[in-house]
Structure formats: C-alpha cells, structure tokens
Design a protein around this nucleic acid. Structure first.
Lengths: 239, 239
DNA sequence: CAGTGGTCTAGACCACTGC
DNA sequence: CAGTGGTCTAGACCACTGT
C-alpha cells in the first residue's frame, strides 16, 4: 500500500473512531508530516484525495476540517462500491429474473463501445431492501471483460465478484438520472400503480484503462430510494 | 492565476478547440512539462484537478485521455455554477414569487448552522427554460453573509451576484435528491396534475471556510429535467 | 506576526503498457 | 525495453487566518 493511501486511510479511521463531525478540526499539516514521517507533499496528496471525495475540506491559514458525513440511507452516486457496501446497515437481497447472452442493441453497443458481433451478458434482477422491493435492474456486461457469470453470482453480489474474483478495478462511472411515470409492467414489479413516479438511472462503469464494461439501467421505487451527491468547486478553472 | 490552474485551463481549451472525444489522447506528461516549462509535479497537479472533475483519465504506462463530455441538456450535479452556465445553450428566466427576511425554521437553522435569532433571506422563484416552467425554487440565505438581496437580483442571477458582486467563493455543496408525488399547489405551479412525479433536490452551499450560507429546496418538472453525475473510484482507500 | 495551508522545483526511482 | 505515468523527497517561498 502506498504511503499516501495509508495516510488517507488512517485519517478516515481517525474521523470514524473519534466520531468527528462537520467542522471538527484535524491535526495540522506539520503534525501529520511528523506523525507519519513523510514529506509534506505526500500528506497533501492524501488530503487532496480525501477532499475530492468530500470527506474533508482544507482552509488556508486555518486548518483541516471534517466535512459532514454522508447521511445513512442515501445512495451515494459518486461512490463505486455497489449497494451492498453503500447501504451496508440494510439487508439487501436480489432475485434474478433473467440471465443470458445476447447480441447488443445499438444503444448497448454505443455505451459499451463495441460492435454487434461482440456478445454481452444481459442480467435482469429485482433487488430488495429489508425484504421490500427496492429497484429493477437491467445490466449489460461486455463479455470480453466479464467472461463468465452465473445465476448464483448474480443472486449474491456481482460487484464483489468483479472486484474480488475477476480482479477488475472499476475506476470511474457516469450516471444519467431521469424521472417518469411507471408503465404497467414496471409498476407491477415495484408493487406500485401504473403512472406512479419511477426513477430511472442509467450508469456506465469504466475500468482504469478507460474501457466501459457495464451498462445498466435501474428503475427505483420512489418511496424506498433517496440520493446523495456532493460537489466541489472548480470555478478557478472556468474563469 | 496559478501555474497549475493555467495549465488545466489550457488543456480544457485544447479539448474544446480540437473537439476531442472520449478516449482521445492528450500530449504526454513530458510533452506538457516542456511545453509549459514547469516541473512535472505542477502538470500532475493540473491533471489531477481535471481528473477529479471528470474531464480526463490517466492510464499508467499508456497516456492521458479525454473522458466523455457531459451531454448537453443535463443538469450536472457536481458543478457549482448555477443553472445559467450549466444549461448555457438554453434560455433561462426566473419569476420571483416572494422575497423577504424571515426567522429561520429549525430545519433551516440546522442546515445553515445558525440560531433562531439570525435572520435569513427567503426567496421563492419559478424558473423557466425556453419559456416553459422548469422548477420551483425556495432558498434561504444566511443574512450575515448575503447581507443584501433585492427582487431585481433575484430576477436575474443570484449566482452571478454572489460570485461577482459579493465576491463569495462557493467551495463545495451537498445535494439530497428524492422523488415523490406533487401536491396540489406545486402541481399548479408546474402546470402538472396533483400526484404526478416531482423531483425534490435539497442543496446546501458552503464557502471556502466551510460555512454554509445557502440552503435551497427545488422541485423540478420531471419532463423538463435530467441529471448527470460522475464518480471516481477510491476503492484503494476503503480496502 | 505566528501558525497553517498552498505552490513549485529538480530529481531519484518505481510500475505499468504495448510494441 | 522504450515510453509513459506515479510516488516521494527536501526544501524554498508564498498566501491566508486569527489573535
């Protein structure tokens, strides 16, 4: 593990252990430098990492402070961890409706940057939170990358399988969120009425080398889901 | 302007001017170093900045690549720019429904981290895109920070007023997104039916010193709004 | 003005990719 | 194995905050 990763992690642990809240002050840069016995830039690298993920903020001339912790029960759109760790205090289960190899539609081809002759896995699942229906998920996996998938894996955690077994390093992702009225079929799945609100999130997941390998479309139950997004300024870059 | 800011901006311009797309390669680190005549770390700082805002991605041993441009017409939840620059190709207008000084409710006190004896501005606006109703916005501004506000400013761009006139540097923000059914009053404003979907986004805006100064609650017209969110991994920090 | 964070450098050395 | 990105250092100097 790299030094700056270790330091970032230690600071995260410190916040967790001491139960620090929004605005609480962390040790100064100099203190961290001598505590970890590294150069200033290395500590700064760790801090920048934490800052860009919304855990802390640094105030010039004043100090380093804890940023409000993400509230429980929200889906954090900026994290790449699958729901299981995101909503880890909840009991999450899945039911596989369909798992098969298909020829990608044009939409899927475009999102996964592949041709029609490249087969993909199609997976459709219902997902439950504390036993209550939570969302309908349809995923397309590039079969060149996710070479094998079965029902049992899909029933458990695809995310864990990808990261732990296939050693795929998911590096970044894009989400597109829209809201509409549910059609009859989706309403039935979600145990709602036709015309009730439905939250549709399309997501594309990329590996570290920039290759997209998973395109998914989720329809959330509007009463069971809420989302959390953080932003950081880059006003200076815009002018 | 700092060197790394200048470099980041030049790279943004390069992408813009050459109309580079997802996966297109940028000049190598060494080339950038000699082009801008700065040290390697300074270029890296610029690149990290661009990366954390989702404009590029760096692949070790391979190169620096452009990340897909945010699609037009989406509200980018991670940027701090007000709608006017975010949806800049659209004609956006506002109608002020109410602007007054109020005693903050407990919710507002909590979000703005102030006491009941600190007055706040309350602003309620309807916002239009290309002449069509787009959202209902209610904002609360900490009057210690936003010391003056009038109808004319509110009719134009509060964001521009805050940044250009008051020289406030908005540094980070939190969004909470939920979906529900519209009540009769909000449906009327949005020219929809009671029970139609309504997208509610609560946002808290912070200054560079960590002080929250604006809490707003927006109800979007579900047919006129769609959202874009990007994420970057920090899997290594979680273990 | 002391304390604290931010920028920048020059250079050593490491790690990964793709031919 | 050449090219390219990533980590880390030690230190100089700058900029802002708060007392």
């Amino acid at each position: 593990m790299l030094k700056y990763e270790y330091i970032a992690k230690e600071i995260m642990n410190l916040i967790e252990d001491k139960d620090l809240r929004q605005g609480d002050k962390l040790p100064s840069l100099d203190e961290l430098v001598s505590q970890f016995e590294v150069s200033k830039n290395t500590v700064i690298k760790a801090l920048d990492e934490l800052q860009s993920h919304g855990l802390i903020y640094q105030v010039r001339g004043s100090g380093i402070f804890v940023r409000g912790r993400r509230q429980k029960g929200y889906i954090n759109m900026m994290e790449i961890q699958g729901f299981n760790s995101m909503l880890r205090e909840f009991d999450l289960t899945s039911k596989v409706l369909e798992l098969k190899e298909v020829i990608p539609s044009e939409t899927v081809q475009a999102h996964l940057q592949i041709d029609a002759d490249q087969p993909v896995y199609y997976l459709k699942r219902l997902r439950y939170i504390e036993g209550r229906i939570f969302c309908i998920e349809e995923s397309y996996f590039d079969k060149n990358i996710v070479m094998y998938l079965n029902e049992q894996i899909a029933e458990e955690s695809v995310f864990n399988y990808l990261t732990n077994n296939l050693k795929l390093q998911i590096s970044f992702l894009d989400h597109y969120l829209r809201v509409g009225k549910l059609n009859q079929q989706n309403a039935a799945y979600l145990e709602l009425q036709e015309g009730d609100p439905g939250i549709q999130v399309e997501s594309i997941f990329y590996l570290a080398n920039g290759v997209p390998f998973d395109y998914s479309k989720i329809i959330y139950h509007y009463e069971e889901s809420q989302f959390f997004i953080q932003g950081n300024s880059y006003y200076n870059l815009m002018n």
